[in-house]
Design a binder for these strands. Structure first.
Length: 545
RNA sequence: GCCCCCGUAGCUCAGUCCGGACAGAGCAGCGGACUUCUAUUCCGCUGGCCGCAGGUUCGAAUCCUGCCGGGGGUGCCA
């Protein structure tokens, strides 16, 4: 049983011995300050009013009752502040954490069954196949992939999906831009003017259709940079396929039958205002062409047949579509909650302190591939996942590439490399780790060691939270702190050496195995690599280059 | 006008979901620590009316309301 459950049970028993009904969930938290114990509960504060007692008095009563109960964990109790009861535990619970982590290994530690194999489709990027991905797409790409990894570790069956808008107005404009360029004519005013158009136009073989060729060109370009970022999609869902299969027409008749649409001014409209939208939205234009919305609704209906949860990652410029998409889903009898739209705020790219515009249509773009090439895949991913998607991000290429000492990814990777390096050394000098059961973990008494164990214990909670909140930056934050804990330990505590007690070497080596597992899991969830070694010269060259 | 996001240290950001004990970290600045398994490290100091004003609460950075400031959206474009 987890130490937390054990303590909660103690509290529950104590409260009932005091004749108090449990009305609230018992809240156990890790105090921010270590002087406040290993665990703390505010239950006395929460129940004081009901118990017609002062929080402080109630806390004292609770503590007294707790002390009369036997526990293998609790060594000391304390009533503090306005009425907190603080638990000071003996260290066995921390040693259990280490054993558990090492027993489970990277594959299984901090994994949960919370998702109980529910199917979830994470749809992200879904950029139009009309050009390369730009730096802004990188954020959604890294976020979506990391969310998928976190959900997988939380017991979901995850599919990564890319919706390809391979038909419609934008696609036609793209094709005509390419065609115009090939023919040496001016690109239409509302066409695509990016520098890549000229390059691509020059590549088109004479007998090829610009639209089909351009689509393939764009998709392969996008796929390549995503692969560089360590992102692989399970499926690329083509909008055209929805037309071919007749599903779009089917959606249209379903909406009509549900009385969710109507005809006006020669167009077909969705009654989205009935679900809180500002205005009704056009599904079929008066010229008979579909708007983007209708195929998109069809696509979402299809996804609903394939998964229980749909998670979409959209850029901030699409937030207005959430209401209409949910309106469509709900009007056809589905629960709108099954669609969760995560909106990523803008990325402002800087280089030499100068703002760089992202617009694909002005042609003044910084492509994602440039970013990856300049700062590297790991640094790019880590940087994109450094903060909550709710905040506008300033991605400074100079900072992330040149000034490595300001770049947290190296700090974390270096922590990993240091342990690897120590283990290599251990191997060279013929060190043999004892079997788990023979290692005397009570050797681990140093503050640095205990801090590491506490941090390791947090990881499953952090993963659970990241999964619940769809927030990879929780992992990033933990990883940075955990790496700091490791560096502190590494500085103060030697592992190998003639002057170190062999039993202490064994215990610390085991500790390092546990830390390695924690780092590997964290880095895997972010999709960054865990390097065996890192050398200064190498980095300096990379930073200057 | 309406909708979404943000406003916490000089800078970049955690913490806000689910209210608790003196508000944290990195970078920048200042000062220290390498005969050791990697100093890309470590330790210390400096630095905050948590945008403003009310409200709820024993208790608010966190919840509610209203403002102010910044960004984005608001097409029979995607």
């Amino acid at each position: 049983m987890d130490v937390r459950e054990s303590i909660k049970n103690l509290i529950r028993d104590s409260l009932s011995s005091l004749g108090l009904e449990m009305t609230a969930e018992i809240h156990l938290e890790r105090p921010a300050n270590v002087e406040h114990g290993d665990w703390s509960t505010n239950i006395a504060l929460a129940l004081a009013k009901k118990a017609k007692s002062s929080p402080r008095d109630l806390a004292v009563q609770l503590a007294t009752a707790l002390e009369s109960l036997p526990s293998s964990y609790v060594s000391r109790l304390e009533v503090a502040g306005p009425g907190f009861v603080n638990f000071y535990l003996n260290k066995s619970w921390l040693y259990e954490v280490l054993l558990q982590a090492v027993n489970d290994g990277t594959e299984n530690w901090a994994r949960s069954e919370e998702g109980s194999n529910k199917k979830v489709i994470v749809e992200f990027v879904s950029a139009n196949p009309t050009g390369p991905l730009h730096a802004g797409h990188g954020r959604g790409a890294c976020y979506g992939d990391s969310v998928a990894r976190i959900l997988e570790r939380s017991g979901y069956l995850v599919a990564r999906e890319f919706y390809v808008n391979d038909r419609g107005t934008q696609m036609n404009l793209f094709a005509s831009s390419l065609a115009a360029c090939t023919a040496g004519e001016n690109i239409p005013e509302d066409g695509y003017h990016g520098a890549y158009i000229k390059e691509w136009a020059a590549e088109i073989p004479r007998d090829q259709d610009p639209l089909e060729w351009g689509k393939k060109r764009a998709l392969s370009d996008q796929r390549e940079v995503l692969r560089d970022l360590n992102i692989e999609f399970d499926s690329w869902f083509s909008e055209t396929s929805l037309v071919d299969s007749g599903l779009i027409e089917k959606t249209l008749s379903m909406l009509a039958k549900a009385n969710a649409s109507y005809e006006k001014d020669g167009a077909t409209w969705l009654k989205s205002t009935e679900y809180g939208d500002d205005k009704d939205r056009v599904l079929v234009k008066s010229d008979g062409e579909y708007t983007y919305l209708l195929p998109d609704i069809t696509y979402h209906l299809d996804k609903l047949t394939r998964a229980e949860r749909l998670i979409n990652v959209w850029g901030a410029d699409h937030h207005g579509y959430i209401t209409r998409m949910k309106a469509a889903i709900e009007s056809l009898g589905h629960e709108p909650e099954r669609l969760e739209v995560e909106v990523t705020q803008m990325v402002n790219l800087q280089r030499s302190g100068e703002e760089v515009k992202l617009s694909k249509r002005t042609g003044d773009i910084v492509e994602l591939s440039e970013v990856v090439k300049e700062v590297g895949s790991d640094a790019a991913r880590f940087t994109y996942l450094l903060q909550s998607i709710d905040t506008t991000q300033t991605f400074d290429l100079d900072l992330v590439s040149k000034r490595v000492n300001e770049n947290p990814i190296f700090y974390v990777q270096y922590a990993y490399a240091r342990i690897r390096s120590m283990m290599k050394k251990a191997d060279e000098i013929g060190f043999t780790p004892l079997p788990l059961s023979e290692v005397d973990l009570s050797q681990l008494q140093h503050q640095r060691e205990l801090i590491l164990l506490r941090a390791l214990h947090e990881l499953p909670d952090v993963v659970e939270r990241a999964s619940r909140e769809l927030a990879p930056h929780q992992i990033t934050t933990w990883l940075r702190e955990f790496a700091a804990d490791l560096h502190g330990f590494y500085h103060d505590c030697r592992i190998l050496g003639d002057d170190i007690e062999p039993s202490l070497t064994q215990a610390r080596f085991l500790l390092m195995r546990g830390v390695l597992i924690g780092l590997e899991i964290g880095m895997d969830l972010l999709g960054v690599s865990a390097p065996e070694e890192m050398w200064r010269d190498e980095i300096v060259e990379e930073g200057d280059g």
